[in-house]
Structure formats: structure tokens, C-alpha cells
């Protein structure tokens, strides 16, 4: 069995990552400033009021802290695993992929915490008669990307299985592993959409217009974070499959093309994560006044 250990460069990258994650965590757990709250609200077309400002501040604090914690733990998980077991994870030494996966888990845990809160007791309960759908909270392009892109991984796995291999290099990773990874990506995409729908259908008591708008913006923010991380992970998986194919193919031209595509997928993952998760402006497409309307 092959053993592995961290190089000097690896330790430096690990250290830089830990420092960034720790600084990010400290920043995230501190109460968000007015500018940060205003910027987030502006991204979601939310008008801030006295009552919804506190809700947004608490949400930002909770989600950002768990996202940074998850990303940090993901980042260090590979070197810790190498130190303990003496070999990298089966999917390779992709610290970025593990950091994004950790971020996604952190974002999901933040939602689970929110879902688990008991409903305040009330004799009279109210609900707005406005349907909520996933497409109200996230761009359709994002939903369809998460639905369609995993099948590209499956197709690539099939190509990997049937492509002529270079006999001198051996087949690493194995065909079975690449096919299994592709199936996991499809299942992961389905799980992401299912979880997003749970967030959409989370109970939304009809309260006041400003709190309802804040609740909608929070749902949109959460689903954007999850979708962004999911798209990034799927693209990174696609990139991993392409680079694996480049490593085993006997055809140098095909190898060069798929290598380029693999790197493009990795870059695309980073861009998708930043753009969809942190830059995109999104106002929930529902009636402006549901309570008093």
C-alpha cells in the first residue's frame, strides 16, 4: 500500500488555509456591521426595518460562522487524514473540493438548526395564500444546472470506461471508482434539490410584511449558498473526471483537450461559487404585500 506525507509546500498551503478560515470564522461570529447587513439586504431587494434588521443580523452571523467552520474543517481534513492514515482520500488530494464540501455541509447544518426550532405556541395561526416554489428563490439556470450537469459526469464515466487506455500508466483511478463517483454526483444533485425544496416549504407564518420579506430573503440567501456550493462541487467532480481521463488515455490530443476542459471546470467551479453564492442579486418573485394584501 502506498503511503503519503505532506510536502513543505503542502504545509504552507495548509497553514495559509487554516489562517484564512480562522480569520473568516472570527469575522463571521462577530456581530455584522450595518454596511454588511445593508449590502446583503440590497442583494435581495429587501427594505430594512427596525424589526427585520435583527433577524437578518442573526441569520448572517449563524450561517457565515457555520459556513466558514465547515470550509475550514474541509480544508484541513485531507492533511489530517494523511497524517493519521498515511494516504489521501480516494478522490485524491483536492483540498479545494473538500473545502467547498465543508462549506456546503456548514450551510446545510445552519438550515437544519433553523428547521429544528419549535413553532411558537399560538391559538390563531395564519398563512399567506401565495404559493412558494423553488424557482421563486433561485435562478432557473441554477436549478437546471444542478439537474443536468451530473449526467455529464455519468457520460464522462462511460467514456472513461470505454476509452483506449495507455498500458504503461495503468488505470488509476479504476473504472468502477469513476462510475461510482459519477453515480454519487447524481445522487448528491438530487439531494441538493430535495433539501432546497425543504427550505422553500419550511413553515412561514404570516406575520408582518417586512418580516415576511426578510424570511423570503433568508430562504433565497440560503438556497443560493447551497446551490452555489453544489454547482461548484459538481463542476469540480466533472473536472476530476476529465483530468482522470486525460491521465489514462492513449490519445495525446484527446488528453490535451480533456485536460484543458478539466482545468476550465475547476475555474468555472470557483466562478460559479462566487457569482451565484455571493454576488448575484436576487429578489424573491412573490407578491410585494402578502399580509396586508
Amino acid at each position: 500500500m502506498q503511503t503519503a506525507q505532506l510536502t513543505s509546500a503542502g504545509w504552507i498551503i495548509l497553514g495559509v488555509g487554516v489562517v484564512i478560515a480562522a480569520a473568516g470564522f472570527v469575522w463571521a461570529v462577530s456581530p455584522p456591521g450595518e454596511t454588511r447587513i445593508a449590502r446583503w439586504s440590497s442583494h435581495h431587494g429587501l427594505g430594512l426595518t427596525e424589526s427585520n434588521r435583527a433577524v437578518i443580523a442573526a441569520y448572517l452571523r449563524r450561517t457565515r460562522a457555520l459556513q466558514f467552520l465547515g470550509a475550514g474543517l474541509g480544508w484541513v481534513s485531507s492533511p489530517v487524514n494523511i497524517s493519521l492514515v498515511g494516504r489521501p482520500f480516494p478522490l485524491g488530494d483536492s483540498w479545494v473540493m473538500l473545502a467547498v464540501a465543508g462549506y456546503l455541509v456548514g450551510a446545510a447544518v445552519a438550515e437544519v438548526v433553523c428547521l429544528g426550532r419549535p413553532r411558537p405556541p399560538a391559538t390563531v395561526r395564519a398563512a399567506a395564500l401565495a404559493p412558494r416554489t423553488l424557482f421563486d428563490y433561485v435562478p432557473a439556470a441554477s436549478v437546471w444546472t444542478i439537474r443536468v450537469l451530473p449526467f455529464a459526469t455519468v457520460i464522462l464515466a462511460v467514456v472513461y470506461a470505454i476509452a483506449p487506455k495507455n498500458p504503461q500508466r495503468g488505470v488509476d483511478p479504476s473504472v468502477a471508482f469513476v462510475v461510482a463517483a459519477a453515480i454519487v454526483v447524481v445522487a448528491f444533485a438530487a439531494l441538493t434539490e430535495w433539501f432546497s425544496r425543504i427550505i422553500v416549504l419550511r413553515p412561514q407564518p404570516a406575520i408582518t410584511d417586512d418580516l415576511l420579506a426578510a424570511d423570503d430573503a433568508i430562504r433565497a440567501g440560503s438556497i443560493h449558498s447551497l446551490s452555489a456550493a453544489a454547482v461548484a462541487l459538481i463542476l469540480l467532480s466533472l473536472g476530476w473526471t476529465l483530468l482522470s481521463l486525460a491521465g489514462v488515455t492513449v490519445n495525446p490530443q484527446l488528453g490535451a483537450i480533456v485536460s484543458g476542459l478539466g482545468v476550465a471546470c475547476d475555474l468555472g467551479a470557483l466562478i460559479a461559487w462566487i457569482v451565484l453564492g455571493h454576488v448575484t442579486n436576487w429578489q424573491v418573485r412573490r407578491g410585494a404585500s402578502l399580509v396586508s394584501g
Binding site: R125, A127, L129, A130, P131, Q204
Partner: peptide, 24 residues
């Protein structure tokens, strides 16, 4: 609401699941 026209013809209603969740 429907008889008085407050909910107009063709208006989409929330799903059973959504209403049940919101109303507990």
C-alpha cells in the same frame, strides 16, 4: 374569498403541503 372575488378565477393556490406546514 372565491365567492366574493377576493381570490380571482385562475389564481394559483399554495400546495396542500405548504399550507399544512404554514398552519401547523
Amino acid at each position: 374569498m372565491i365567492a366574493t372575488g377576493l381570490l380571482p378565477a385562475g389564481q394559483r393556490l399554495p400546495s396542500i403541503r405548504q399550507l399544512a406546514a404554514d398552519l401547523g
